[in-house]
Nucleic acid binder design. Structure first.
Lengths: 331, 331
DNA sequence: TTGAAAGCGCTACCAG
DNA sequence: CTGGTAGCGCTTTCAA
């Protein structure tokens, strides 16, 4: 089941079969028909490895994300894939579960596939990996991590602003004991959110008591963090979560512990995934335009090296979305 | 950045470099070290296309699912991937969004990659595709669709039993007006669930009024179906959903319309995804062991052709899980 | 223990 | 419009 067999059956050369299959170059209609029939009869499927090897250029991008279970990442991928397909590109996806080793292994695989570009939507960026990219010559685009280079563009969200909005909002509602629920405190971009929380809360000096807890980026992670929080001395009236996904777990655990949201405690998320609307109560959150991010990533990768877009740093301003999971502090 | 350059730098032949990289055949320690150093210096990454082309056999399975956005599918994939990796296999994943054309296109791609086996977790099985598999000579395993063949195994869940349990349970609680919320009514495996609902409900003859509505397999799909349902004449006291994901939307819409669950209307899901627990109220559902399914699929693919496991049909019995979204009919 | 060389299946270029 | 053929980068005998 290779080109040659098809060629033999159609009584033409492999070159002609190739032309027909790729719709390239002139082929007489009758010849084309004969080839197509042979392909059909043999149920021939071109070997993509051979094709890539011979062809040289690839129409495939690689994307690596931290946690596909969290809809945030899937939404970005989905938008990216759509954009890519609209332009005749494929995207191969890999997941790291926040494990830097996983990241490296997956990256090797993608490079081995000779992808035409790499998109990273991760938090566990290893500095070594970051460096390696600079020396590579394929275009790359990072979300949330790394720094711009000649061949790598960056897209970031102004998390600070988002967290700030949340803290100010809650403060205005009278909250004085706040907690931040995060995950993977050791990872750079995540620690930024945590730090911003600390700093913003710090503005109010001793007017606000606060605490930071961390767990895994899962629903159960949110639950566990909440348990830890409730067991601690601080009896928070507001919980700010690093993302909506964990907030789902926080809401659940609070309910299990008999705390009413937002009457007893207010909760905010981050990302504004679909589930934030469906949650009960609907989650006050910070909107991150995943669609736009996915599209931008692909756009940047498809843009030729010389473009002024490459090597640039796009920053997106998030938008605060108030729903029912936050309210005035109980008096 | 190819084998030859590495070979040149290490002053050995490409054959030796290959041996080192694949840990195969005898290589003097000093030689191996020299090669490794060269690889390091050149930041060499083997071209997987070339490798696959030359090597012949593949350690990659393909998996195609209908809707990655629905956690059910992701859970199956995740389990499969873990099992595969534990045995030195990769899994490449593709999504169809219930589009048969997508299915065919993705299948071609995977076959083009010469995968060592195919796992299909879909509902939109085209009979032509089904037939095509029989003629193919790679092992395959289908979940929920197709029929066993010499080279294809089937894993199915006894949906009938699950739906039956739900209907009986609701009937015992006094419900007499029930609705079934599904999606893609034209797709075989899905229509089975619908049919079972019809039949089971039929057992009670005129004692139960019922209706079937369908939408998309999304949260919003669940909402829309609910809207349609409420607008229809039937004022259901119980809604049975084809899966938990859509049930999430159903719960949401009911809330928006001022109906209390389960006081005004009971709701059941199917699958028992994590979100079913987190939903409010927690969803009564039917548990499907996604982990086990994912593992089984890979196991079957790795099993040699001759194994008695291939060509067989595994059927899994689901388990009914009662939570707070169902209750006695309001009197 | 190592090297030379024959492919793997396909594309692309050059003739005709 | 079509055929011949030189690689693409790697693995794998077969000899040395």
């Amino acid at each position: 089941m290779n080109l040659e067999e098809v060629a033999k059956l159609a009584r033409v050369s492999t070159a002609t079969v190739s032309r027909v299959l790729n719709n390239v170059g002139p082929v007489r209609a009758s010849t084309r028909a004969r080839v197509l029939k042979a392909v059909e009869e043999l149920k021939y499927t071109p070997n993509l490895h051979a094709r890539n090897l011979a062809g040289g250029k690839s129409r495939t991008f690689g994307m690596i994300v931290s946690n596909l279970e969290n809809p945030f990442f899937f939404d970005v991928f989905k938008a990216a894939e759509q954009t890519a397909r609209a332009h005749g590109f494929e995207i191969v996806l890999a997941n790291t579960d926040y494990d830097p080793e996983h990241l490296v292994r997956n990256l090797r695989l993608m490079l081995g596939r000779r992808v035409a570009g790499m998109a990273l939507v991760i938090s566990e960026m290893d500095p070594a990996v970051n460096q390696e990219f600079a020396e590579l010559d394929i275009p790359a685009v990072f979300y949330d991590v790394g720094s711009p280079q000649h061949n790598v563009a960056n897209i970031t969200v102004n998390y600070g602003k988002g967290i700030e909005r949340a803290v100010h909002y809650l403060h205005a509602l009278g909250h004085t004991r706040m907690a931040f629920v995060g995950h993977h405190p050791s990872l750079g971009p995540l620690s930024i959110r945590e730090r911003v929380f600390r700093e913003t809360v710090g503005e109010f000096a001793s007017a606000i008591d606060w605490k930071v807890v961390a767990s895994a980026d899962t629903i159960d992670g949110g639950r566990q963090a909440t348990r830890e929080l409730l067991a601690s001395g601080l009896d928070p009236t507001a919980i700010i979560c690093v993302n909506d996904f964990m907030a789902l777990g926080v809401l659940h655990e609070l309910r299990d512990c008999g705390r009413q949201v937002p009457y007893d405690v207010s909760v905010t998320g981050f990302d504004n995934i679909k589930l934030a609307e469906v949650a009960w109560p609907p989650l006050t959150t910070v909107h991150i335009p995943r669609d736009r991010i996915g599209q931008m990533m692909v756009q940047v990768l498809m843009t030729p090296e010389a473009s002024s877009e490459r090597g640039r740093n796009f920053v997106i301003d998030p938008e605060f979305v108030v729903r029912a999971s936050t309210g005035p502090v109980r008096s």
